[in-house]
């Protein structure tokens, strides 16, 4: 029998309009308790307005050993950065 609760990854939205950000992980028996635990562990200092939790096992991650083929090809493609356009001041922060 497995005695450990599953691991959950926690994402918190700090303010309305911002995106959820990964803040850490915790253990909980189910999703509802994971939300409650996240509230208690990660929002004690008024950090959030919304919480997402996802079981860590449900996340598929890229492999660190693949970083050559995955990321290096984009290093030489500076034209993909939108730095060649003049942006009018009225547009403000983008």
């Amino acid at each position: 029998m497995k005695n450990e609760w599953p691991l959950w990854e926690v994402f918190i939205r700090g303010q309305h309009g911002m995106s959820h950000r990964h803040v850490g992980s915790l253990h909980a028996p189910d999703a509802e308790m994971a939300i409650k635990n996240a509230r208690d562990v990660y929002t004690r200092r008024n950090e959030g307005v919304s919480i997402w939790v996802v079981e860590a096992a449900a996340i598929t991650a890229s492999s660190p050993s693949d970083k050559g083929p995955l990321y290096e090809p984009s290093e030489s493609k500076v034209y993909r950065h939108p730095t060649f356009f003049d942006i009018p001041d009225e547009v403000g922060a983008m």
């Binding site: 609760w5 915790l26 253990h27 909980a28 409650k36 635990n37 208690d40 562990v41 004690r44």
Partner: peptide, 11 residues
């Protein structure tokens, strides 16, 4: 019993 409950109880 677990860290999460410890913090919840302290809260």
């Amino acid at each position: 019993p677990v860290l999460e409950e410890d913090i919840a109880l302290a809260n």
